Amino acid sequence: MPPPGSTRHRYPAIAADAPLVVFDFDHTLYDGDSGGHLFAWLIKRAWWRMLLALLLAPVFAPMIAFLPTRRVGIGAFVWAGTIGFHRRRDLDELIDRYVVTHTGQIRQHLLPVALDVLHRHREQGDRVVVATGAPPELARAILGFVAHEDLPVVGTLVGPRFGAVMATRHCHHQMKMTMLREAGYTAPVAIAYSDSSADLPLLQAALKPVVVNPKPARVAMFRETLPAGTPILNWGCRDRAGDPVSGS
Rank of each mutant, 00 (worst) to 15 (best):
P2N: 10
P4T: 07
S6Q: 12
P12N: 02
A13K: 06
I14R: 02
A16S: 05
A18Y: 01
A18F: 03
V21F: 06
V22S: 08
D24L: 15
F25D: 02
D26E: 03
G32L: 10
G35Q: 12
L38K: 01
F39N: 07
F39E: 10
A40E: 09
W41G: 03
L42K: 03
W47T: 13
W48T: 00
M50D: 12
A53D: 06
L56I: 15
P62N: 01
A65L: 04
T69M: 07
G75R: 14
A76E: 05
F77P: 01
F77V: 14
T82Y: 10
T82F: 04
G84N: 02
F85T: 02
H86Y: 06
R88W: 06
R89V: 06
L91Y: 12
L91D: 09
D92F: 03
D96G: 14
R97Y: 08
R97T: 10
Y98M: 01
Y98W: 12
G104D: 08
G104F: 12
G104W: 06
Q105A: 12
Q105E: 04
R107W: 12
R107S: 14
Q108Y: 09
H109V: 06
L110R: 08
P112S: 00
V113R: 09
L118Y: 01
L118C: 00
H119L: 06
R120C: 08
Q124T: 05
Q124I: 03
D126H: 15
D126K: 09
V129Q: 00
V129L: 05
V130N: 04
T132G: 00
P135E: 03
P136K: 04
E137Q: 13
E137H: 13
R140T: 06
I142T: 05
A147D: 13
E149L: 10
E149A: 14
V153P: 00
G155N: 12
P160D: 07
R161E: 11
M166W: 04
T168Y: 11
T168H: 15
H170E: 15
H173Y: 13
M175G: 09
R181L: 10
E182M: 05
A183M: 02
A192R: 02
S194D: 03
D195Q: 03
L200H: 02
L203P: 05
A205S: 14
A205W: 07
A205K: 07
L207F: 07
K208T: 15
P209N: 00
P209Q: 00
N213V: 12
K215E: 12
A217T: 09
F222S: 04
T225C: 13
T225M: 11
L226W: 08
G229N: 08
G229S: 02
T230Q: 01
N234L: 12
N234Q: 13
W235P: 15
R238T: 14
D239R: 14
G242H: 01
D243E: 13
P244E: 00
V245R: 03
V245T: 07
G247M: 04
